[in-house]
């Protein structure tokens, strides 16, 4: 099944889709990466982060600053953002992971905002609110951008799947279900939570670095945005399905298409957040485990896996 989907996705640019359709597909794949990364930390490890924009933005700024300060291709940002974000999430995790539940949510939310305000104020380093612009785009065609993000997405998907099915994944779920019980069973909760955060952060950061290359322009209000990045990430996973492999992908397809569709309706252009909000409320009340999670057959499979 995954190979069939991968083959279809790999053949997609050959069907001669318009540039706009390719743009949407690229956005869907990029958001799936961020969603899957969030899902590892939020869905499996149970640490609901409201600040994934921090990792996304640090990744994007790593690529951008490499370009402006070191004058090398921002594509180096995709691999190089991984150690940078790993270090960053390690330090951040040291502070925020000692908190639980709502406190963790608040602290992560604050961390995203701190990064935004810091990036706005460190004008010499980040360019402040002017942002960073890449003068020459690598390709005009979208095909290569698509293959690069598809590669990142494939790696993310396999990594999350392998992790979730390994011993580590069971540790994560144990921490989600009951942290004290996990601790008393001899699981080093701090270590594994940090691990989950670092992996999740790195994947998000890689997506951020790709965003810098693809869009060619970033500023603090774009990449460190609370609603446009952090909350959308949560929505993607909530709509698709928490702690499912395909949930974030389904969620990304729905969210990106929904956003584009609402934007295209005349007179409703600015209202997409109202629809997002209502969708989120409906999903939480009626489908708390998302579209994939409450899909009866998959739910049974999930239960078998957990048992």
């Amino acid at each position: 099944m995954p190979f069939v989907i991968l083959a279809i996705l790999a053949a997609l640019p050959l069907t001669g889709l318009s540039s706009y359709a390719m743009h949407l597909v690229i956005l869907v794949v990029m958001w799936s990466v961020v969603g899957m990364a969030w899902n590892l930390l939020g869905g499996y490890c149970g640490q609901v982060s409201f600040g994934h924009a921090a990792y996304f933005g640090v990744g994007a700024y790593t690529a951008g600053i490499l370009y402006t300060k070191m004058a090398i291709s921002p594509w180096w940002g995709v691999p190089l953002s991984i150690p940078v974000v790993a270090l960053f999430s390690f330090f951040l995790g040291y502070i925020v992971l000692r908190l639980r539940g709502p406190f963790f949510a608040l602290a992560t939310l604050a961390s995203g905002e701190v990064m935004r305000v810091t990036a706005e104020n460190l004008v010499d380093f980040t360019g402040g609110t002017l942002g960073i612009m890449i003068q020459e785009r690598t390709w005009v065609e979208k095909t290569w951008y698509y293959y690069i993000i598809l590669l990142v997405a494939t790696v993310t998907f396999v990594l999350v799947k392998k992790l979730a099915e390994s011993k580590l994944g069971y540790y994560f779920v144990a921490i989600r279900e009951d942290q004290d019980a996990a601790e008393s069973m001899g699981i080093n909760t701090t270590l594994y939570k940090t691990l989950a955060l670092c992996i999740s952060g790195c994947l998000t950061g890689a997506a951020g670095a790709f965003y810098m290359n693809y869009m060619g322009y970033i500023d603090p209000n774009v990449v460190f945005a609370l609603h446009d990045i952090s909350i959308i990430t949560i929505m993607i996973v909530m709509v698709g399905g928490v702690a499912t492999y395909w949930g974030p992908v389904v969620g990304a397809v729905i969210m990106v298409l929904l956003a584009e569709w609402i934007r295209s309706i005349p007179g409703l252009g600015t209202a997409h957040y109202t629809f997002f909000g209502i969708l989120l409320i409906i999903i939480i009340i009626f489908l708390p485990n998302g579209i994939v999670g409450d899909f009866p057959k998959l739910k049974r499979l999930l239960k078998l896996q957990k048992a």
Binding site: V48, H227, I231, T274, F276, G277, L280, I284
Partner: peptide, 11 residues
């Protein structure tokens, strides 16, 4: 519930 309040705020 926390995510729900986010939705309310967005609307």
């Amino acid at each position: 519930q926390v995510i729900l309040t986010v939705g309310i705020g967005m609307v």
